[in-house]
Protein backbone atom coordinates (compact mmCIF):
# COMPACT_ATOMS: atom_id res chain seq x y z
CA UNK A 1 0.00 0.00 0.00
CA UNK A 2 1.20 3.51 -0.74
CA UNK A 3 2.60 5.41 2.23
CA UNK A 4 2.30 9.14 2.70
CA UNK A 5 4.76 10.32 5.29
CA UNK A 6 6.07 13.33 3.36
CA UNK A 7 5.22 16.70 4.85
CA UNK A 8 3.01 19.23 3.14
CA UNK A 9 6.10 21.32 2.30
CA UNK A 10 7.93 18.31 0.85
CA UNK A 11 4.96 17.49 -1.37
CA UNK A 12 4.60 21.11 -2.50
CA UNK A 13 8.29 21.27 -3.39
CA UNK A 14 7.99 17.95 -5.21
CA UNK A 15 5.21 19.35 -7.40
CA UNK A 16 7.00 22.67 -7.94
CA UNK A 17 10.25 20.96 -8.92
CA UNK A 18 8.35 18.74 -11.36
CA UNK A 19 6.59 21.69 -13.02
CA UNK A 20 9.78 23.73 -13.25
CA UNK A 21 11.73 20.77 -14.61
CA UNK A 22 9.09 20.21 -17.29
CA UNK A 23 9.16 23.92 -18.12
CA UNK A 24 12.93 23.89 -18.31
CA UNK A 25 12.78 20.95 -20.74
CA UNK A 26 10.02 22.33 -22.94
CA UNK A 27 11.25 25.96 -22.88
CA UNK A 28 7.68 27.10 -23.60
CA UNK A 29 8.00 30.12 -21.28
CA UNK A 30 11.35 31.11 -22.70
CA UNK A 31 10.51 30.57 -26.37
CA UNK A 32 6.86 31.62 -26.42
CA UNK A 33 5.63 33.48 -23.32
CA UNK A 34 8.54 35.94 -22.94
CA UNK A 35 8.66 36.83 -26.67
CA UNK A 36 4.87 37.30 -26.63
CA UNK A 37 5.11 39.64 -23.65
CA UNK A 38 7.87 41.70 -25.28
CA UNK A 39 5.92 41.79 -28.53
CA UNK A 40 2.94 43.24 -26.67
CA UNK A 41 5.20 46.01 -25.34
CA UNK A 42 6.40 46.79 -28.85
CA UNK A 43 2.84 46.85 -30.18
CA UNK A 44 1.80 49.24 -27.41
CA UNK A 45 4.64 51.46 -28.64
CA UNK A 46 3.21 51.39 -32.18
CA UNK A 47 -0.29 52.08 -30.87
CA UNK A 48 0.92 55.16 -28.97
CA UNK A 49 2.91 56.37 -31.98
CA UNK A 50 6.22 55.89 -30.19
CA UNK A 51 5.54 59.00 -28.14
CA UNK A 52 8.25 58.63 -25.47
CA UNK A 53 6.55 60.88 -22.92
CA UNK A 54 3.23 59.05 -23.24
CA UNK A 55 4.91 55.66 -23.12
CA UNK A 56 6.86 56.66 -20.03
CA UNK A 57 3.70 57.92 -18.31
CA UNK A 58 1.70 54.84 -19.21
CA UNK A 59 4.54 52.34 -18.66
CA UNK A 60 3.19 50.95 -15.34
CA UNK A 61 -0.20 50.16 -16.86
CA UNK A 62 1.27 48.82 -20.08
CA UNK A 63 3.69 46.65 -18.08
CA UNK A 64 0.94 45.07 -16.00
CA UNK A 65 -1.38 44.64 -18.96
CA UNK A 66 1.37 42.85 -20.88
CA UNK A 67 2.13 40.70 -17.83
CA UNK A 68 -1.51 39.70 -17.32
CA UNK A 69 -2.01 38.84 -21.01
CA UNK A 70 1.13 36.71 -20.88
CA UNK A 71 -0.06 35.13 -17.65
CA UNK A 72 -2.90 33.52 -19.60
CA UNK A 73 -0.32 31.65 -21.69
CA UNK A 74 1.68 30.64 -18.62
CA UNK A 75 -1.43 29.38 -16.80
CA UNK A 76 -2.53 27.48 -19.88
CA UNK A 77 0.85 25.80 -19.98
CA UNK A 78 0.62 24.94 -16.27
CA UNK A 79 -2.77 23.29 -16.92
CA UNK A 80 -1.49 21.48 -19.99
CA UNK A 81 1.16 19.70 -17.93
CA UNK A 82 -1.59 17.97 -15.96
CA UNK A 83 -3.66 16.96 -18.98
CA UNK A 84 -1.12 14.55 -20.44
CA UNK A 85 -1.73 10.88 -21.12
CA UNK A 86 -3.88 9.94 -18.11
CA UNK A 87 -1.88 12.20 -15.80
CA UNK A 88 -5.00 13.71 -14.20
CA UNK A 89 -5.98 10.19 -13.05
CA UNK A 90 -2.49 9.59 -11.70
CA UNK A 91 -2.52 12.86 -9.75
CA UNK A 92 -5.73 11.87 -7.99
CA UNK A 93 -4.44 8.37 -7.28
CA UNK A 94 -1.04 9.52 -6.04
CA UNK A 95 -2.49 10.66 -2.75
CA UNK A 96 -0.76 14.05 -2.70
CA UNK A 97 -2.47 16.59 -0.47
CA UNK A 98 -4.53 18.91 -2.69
CA UNK A 99 -3.24 21.97 -0.83
CA UNK A 100 0.33 20.80 -1.51
CA UNK A 101 -0.41 20.42 -5.23
CA UNK A 102 -1.90 23.90 -5.22
CA UNK A 103 1.09 25.39 -3.39
CA UNK A 104 3.57 23.63 -5.65
CA UNK A 105 1.90 24.66 -8.88
CA UNK A 106 1.39 28.20 -7.57
CA UNK A 107 5.05 28.50 -6.61
CA UNK A 108 6.24 27.21 -9.99
CA UNK A 109 3.91 29.55 -11.86
CA UNK A 110 4.85 32.47 -9.60
CA UNK A 111 8.56 31.93 -10.16
CA UNK A 112 8.03 31.94 -13.92
CA UNK A 113 5.98 35.13 -13.64
CA UNK A 114 8.72 36.84 -11.64
CA UNK A 115 11.25 35.99 -14.36
CA UNK A 116 8.81 37.18 -17.00
CA UNK A 117 8.28 40.41 -15.04
CA UNK A 118 12.02 41.02 -14.91
CA UNK A 119 12.22 40.63 -18.70
CA UNK A 120 9.26 42.97 -19.12
CA UNK A 121 10.75 45.50 -16.70
CA UNK A 122 13.88 45.56 -18.82
CA UNK A 123 11.60 46.07 -21.80
CA UNK A 124 9.78 49.11 -20.39
CA UNK A 125 13.06 50.66 -19.20
CA UNK A 126 14.67 50.26 -22.60
CA UNK A 127 11.68 50.76 -24.93
CA UNK A 128 9.66 53.31 -22.92
CA UNK A 129 12.53 55.03 -21.11
CA UNK A 130 10.78 54.30 -17.80
CA UNK A 131 12.53 55.31 -14.59
CA UNK A 132 12.39 53.84 -11.08
CA UNK A 133 12.10 56.18 -8.09
CA UNK A 134 11.23 53.71 -5.34
CA UNK A 135 12.84 50.29 -5.80
CA UNK A 136 11.41 48.97 -2.52
CA UNK A 137 7.81 49.74 -3.46
CA UNK A 138 8.38 48.34 -6.93
CA UNK A 139 9.75 45.04 -5.63
CA UNK A 140 7.16 44.56 -2.88
CA UNK A 141 4.34 45.36 -5.30
CA UNK A 142 5.74 42.89 -7.81
CA UNK A 143 5.91 40.12 -5.19
CA UNK A 144 2.38 40.76 -3.85
CA UNK A 145 0.87 41.02 -7.33
CA UNK A 146 2.63 37.90 -8.60
CA UNK A 147 1.45 35.89 -5.58
CA UNK A 148 -2.12 37.00 -6.29
CA UNK A 149 -1.89 36.29 -10.00
CA UNK A 150 -0.23 32.90 -9.48
CA UNK A 151 -2.83 31.87 -6.89
CA UNK A 152 -5.72 32.97 -9.09
CA UNK A 153 -4.22 31.36 -12.18
CA UNK A 154 -3.70 28.08 -10.35
CA UNK A 155 -7.29 28.06 -9.06
CA UNK A 156 -8.86 28.81 -12.44
CA UNK A 157 -6.43 26.49 -14.18
CA UNK A 158 -7.64 23.58 -12.02
CA UNK A 159 -11.21 24.33 -13.01
CA UNK A 160 -10.30 23.89 -16.66
CA UNK A 161 -8.20 20.72 -16.53
CA UNK A 162 -10.92 18.60 -18.08
CA UNK A 163 -12.36 21.25 -20.41
CA UNK A 164 -11.84 21.07 -24.14
CA UNK A 165 -12.28 24.78 -24.87
CA UNK A 166 -9.96 25.95 -22.09
CA UNK A 167 -7.82 28.03 -24.49
CA UNK A 168 -10.73 30.39 -25.05
CA UNK A 169 -12.47 30.04 -21.69
CA UNK A 170 -9.37 30.72 -19.58
CA UNK A 171 -8.79 34.38 -20.59
CA UNK A 172 -12.49 35.15 -20.29
CA UNK A 173 -12.56 33.77 -16.75
CA UNK A 174 -9.16 34.88 -15.56
CA UNK A 175 -8.67 38.40 -16.88
CA UNK A 176 -11.78 39.98 -15.32
CA UNK A 177 -10.92 38.43 -11.97
CA UNK A 178 -7.42 39.90 -12.19
CA UNK A 179 -8.72 43.44 -12.72
CA UNK A 180 -8.02 44.45 -9.07
CA UNK A 181 -4.39 43.38 -9.55
CA UNK A 182 -4.14 45.46 -12.73
CA UNK A 183 -5.55 48.51 -10.98
CA UNK A 184 -3.64 48.16 -7.71
CA UNK A 185 -0.29 47.24 -9.24
CA UNK A 186 -0.53 49.96 -11.87
CA UNK A 187 -1.21 52.62 -9.22
CA UNK A 188 1.55 51.34 -6.92
CA UNK A 189 4.07 51.16 -9.76
CA UNK A 190 2.92 54.60 -10.94
CA UNK A 191 4.14 55.90 -7.60
CA UNK A 192 7.30 53.78 -7.70
CA UNK A 193 8.11 55.01 -11.22
CA UNK A 194 7.14 58.60 -10.49
CA UNK A 195 4.47 58.79 -13.19
CA UNK A 196 1.48 59.51 -10.91
CA UNK A 197 1.12 61.36 -7.63
CA UNK A 198 -0.45 58.72 -5.43
CA UNK A 199 0.38 56.73 -2.32
CA UNK A 200 1.59 53.47 -3.81
CA UNK A 201 1.92 51.79 -0.43
CA UNK A 202 -1.82 52.26 0.14
CA UNK A 203 -2.56 50.42 -3.11
CA UNK A 204 -0.27 47.66 -1.97
CA UNK A 205 -2.80 46.67 0.68
CA UNK A 206 -5.29 45.83 -2.08
CA UNK A 207 -2.75 43.51 -3.66
CA UNK A 208 -1.87 41.85 -0.37
CA UNK A 209 -5.56 41.34 0.42
CA UNK A 210 -6.21 39.88 -3.04
CA UNK A 211 -3.23 37.54 -2.78
CA UNK A 212 -4.23 36.40 0.71
CA UNK A 213 -7.84 35.67 -0.25
CA UNK A 214 -6.95 33.67 -3.37
CA UNK A 215 -4.13 31.78 -1.68
CA UNK A 216 -6.41 30.70 1.17
CA UNK A 217 -9.33 29.93 -1.16
CA UNK A 218 -7.04 27.95 -3.46
CA UNK A 219 -5.47 25.92 -0.66
CA UNK A 220 -8.85 25.06 0.82
CA UNK A 221 -10.74 24.35 -2.40
CA UNK A 222 -8.13 22.79 -4.67
CA UNK A 223 -9.14 19.21 -3.89
CA UNK A 224 -12.76 19.93 -4.71
CA UNK A 225 -11.72 21.75 -7.89
CA UNK A 226 -9.63 18.79 -9.05
CA UNK A 227 -12.43 16.32 -8.36
CA UNK A 228 -14.99 18.54 -10.09
CA UNK A 229 -12.82 19.07 -13.14
CA UNK A 230 -12.09 15.35 -13.30
CA UNK A 231 -15.81 14.58 -13.45
Amino acid sequence: MARHSASMLDQALLVARKDLRIEWRSKIALNQVVPFALLVLVLFGFALDADTAALRNFSPGLFWLALLLSTVLAVHRSVEIETGDGVSDAVLLAGLRPAAIFAGKMFALGLQLVLLALALLGGVVILYDAGIDDVGLLVVTLVAAVVGVAATGTVYGALLVGQRARETVLPMLLLPVLAPVLIGATRAWGDAMGTVATDGWAWLSLLVGFATVYTVVGALSYGTLLETAHG
Partner: peptide
Protein backbone atom coordinates in the same frame (compact mmCIF):
# COMPACT_ATOMS: atom_id res chain seq x y z
CA UNK B 1 -4.18 4.85 -1.37
CA UNK B 2 -5.07 1.15 -1.33
CA UNK B 3 -5.32 0.54 -5.07
CA UNK B 4 -2.93 0.35 -8.00
CA UNK B 5 -4.63 1.28 -11.25
CA UNK B 6 -3.01 0.79 -14.65
CA UNK B 7 -5.35 1.92 -17.40
CA UNK B 8 -5.12 2.32 -21.15
CA UNK B 9 -3.12 5.49 -20.80
CA UNK B 10 0.47 5.71 -19.58
CA UNK B 11 -0.18 8.18 -16.72
CA UNK B 12 3.34 9.53 -17.23
CA UNK B 13 4.72 13.02 -17.85
CA UNK B 14 6.04 12.99 -21.42
CA UNK B 15 8.70 15.64 -20.83
CA UNK B 16 10.23 13.84 -17.85
CA UNK B 17 12.60 10.91 -18.17
CA UNK B 18 11.67 7.40 -17.09
CA UNK B 19 13.67 7.76 -13.86
CA UNK B 20 12.16 11.18 -13.12
CA UNK B 21 8.66 9.80 -13.59
CA UNK B 22 9.37 6.81 -11.36
CA UNK B 23 10.92 9.08 -8.73
CA UNK B 24 8.12 11.66 -8.85
CA UNK B 25 5.28 9.18 -8.49
CA UNK B 26 7.32 7.20 -5.97
CA UNK B 27 7.95 10.28 -3.84
CA UNK B 28 4.29 11.25 -4.15
CA UNK B 29 3.22 7.87 -2.79
CA UNK B 30 5.96 7.69 -0.17
Amino acid sequence: RHVGYAGHRSMLYDELSVAENIDFWGDAAG
